[in-house]
Amino acid sequence: MSVNGITDVEFGDTLPVFDPDTSLANVARFVEAAHWNAPRFTDHEAARAEGLPGALVPGIMSQGFLAAMIHRWAPKAEILYVDTVFRAPVVVDQPCHINGVVTDLDEATGEVEIDLTVTNEAGETRVFGTARARLPN
């Protein structure tokens, strides 16, 4: 169920899990649009030659996933701030899940704070962060 305003939200609400497209084709599309084209993002072998576990989903793409998740949950949300910490690589072609929970809420301003994590299939946190968004009253 999507959220229309701040009154629809309670502290501790869990956002619907979002499984983003981490395929090589989609990452290639992203890095082209972002002008971030580099073999470490689009070529597993080249990435391994750099000592990486495989081609990487760029950090800025993971951050984009987090923002998209918030918009899917609350289409009218105005994102004010997204802060992400990259703890471990998100590898291209490996499924990951975006999770979010509301950890602060101010009904007067309509602002919510959301904890966000990117986890892999093993449930390990690869990226975490927080976002602040304003919802209509």
């Binding site: 502290f11 802060d83 910490v85 950890t103």
Partner: peptide, 17 residues
């Protein structure tokens, strides 16, 4: 430096959950 949690929200979370 890498912490993103405010202490009051920890408290609120412990009680809410």
């Amino acid at each position: 430096d890498d912490g993103r949690a405010k202490v009051p929200n920890y408290c609120q979370w412990i009680r809410a959950r």
